[in-house]
């Protein structure tokens, strides 16, 4: 029995040791390889200047084309939209921009029905996991967001195993092979193609009294003298309860409302996402109205 227990303990120790080594190796790869995700890209921009930064959900990621902004304004732009990002995620991204001392002229934050949501995005989470031990911003986000926070923090390699589809062996291989993604190629813009069927996307009937992360964002920007502008990206005309945006404007004074700006259905990939053509069209309008004051 003693011999058995010793041997199993040995296997257990070897397993833990391997997990520790793998954790260190994976983290090193994500920290040092050329960026494939937006967070990796953001880290490489430390101390640089980006004039206009756009933060928000996939409605930013697939709706704002930085190259058009740059062409129209002669200034640099970056799209930091993340799929399914909510205001809590936006607050984290904002803090990271500040943490990495990225100089900027103005930050644009897209807000819509996300005002009614207090949770964080599950899609954004894997991108920050490799860096969770680096600073409190990542750590706090996961502490709030993940039910596996303690396992991520204290069990080596658990964070990579649990997120194997996004951070596993395959992604490590692609990092080592320096395979590029749109995160860098299009400065964060991820075009959508096609024109899906009509969707009757409903916005909420009522707006929440408040959103704690909007307050955090506003306070943070005030404290750090960050110029921010809130806006709402276009919705397809089949969207119901668009009056929600009117209510949102009462909560966020100065909000630029583009919710009804794009009328042509062919410019939407689905009810609330512009396709590539639509994104180009909308970015032109945005630049004219907000940045160049035409």
């Amino acid at each position: 029995m003693k011999q058995f227990i010793l041997k199993i303990a040995l296997f257990f120790a070897v397993t833990l040791f391997m997990m520790l080594l793998l954790d260190l190796a994976y983290t090193k790869v994500y920290q040092t390889s050329s960026p494939r995700t937006k967070i990796q890209y953001l880290r490489t921009l430390k101390d640089q200047k980006i004039d206009y930064i756009f933060i928000g959900s996939s409605r930013v990621e697939s709706g704002i084309v930085p190259s058009i902004i740059e062409k129209k304004t002669g200034k640099t732009a970056l799209n930091l939209g993340f799929q399914a990002a909510k205001l809590h995620d936006i607050y984290t991204i904002l803090q990271l921009v500040q943490h990495y001392k990225i100089k900027h002229e103005r930050i644009f934050i897209q807000v819509d029905y996300s005002y009614n949501i207090n949770q964080a995005s599950t899609i954004f989470q894997p991108e920050i996991i490799p860096f969770m031990h680096e600073n409190e911003i990542y750590d706090n986000h996961l502490k709030f967001d993940s039910i596996h926070y303690n396992q991520y923090r204290y069990i080596p390699f658990f964070r990579y195993g649990r997120n194997d589809l996004k951070l596993g062996f395959r992604e490590i291989g692609l990092n080592l092979a320096k395979k590029k993604t749109n995160a860098v190629t299009y400065k964060g813009y991820a075009p959508l193609y096609g024109n899906a069927e009509k969707h009757h996307f409903p916005l909420p009937d009522k707006i929440n009294e408040s959103n704690e992360y909007i307050k955090h964002i506003q306070e943070f920007c005030e404290k750090n003298k960050i110029k921010i502008t809130f806006y709402t990206a276009p919705f397809c005309q089949h969207t119901t309860n668009l009056d929600f945006i009117a209510q949102l404007k009462t909560k966020i004074p100065g909000l630029y409302d583009f919710s009804r700006t794009v009328k042509d259905e062919n410019l939407f990939q689905n009810a609330n996402h512009l396709n590539d053509k639509g994104a180009q069209y909308f970015t032109e309008i945005f630049a004219d109205e907000v940045l160049t004051n035409k």
Partner: peptide, 9 residues
């Protein structure tokens, strides 16, 4: 098992 295992699903 550690490297190639599927734990997310």
């Amino acid at each position: 098992i550690v490297v190639f295992g599927v734990y997310s699903q």
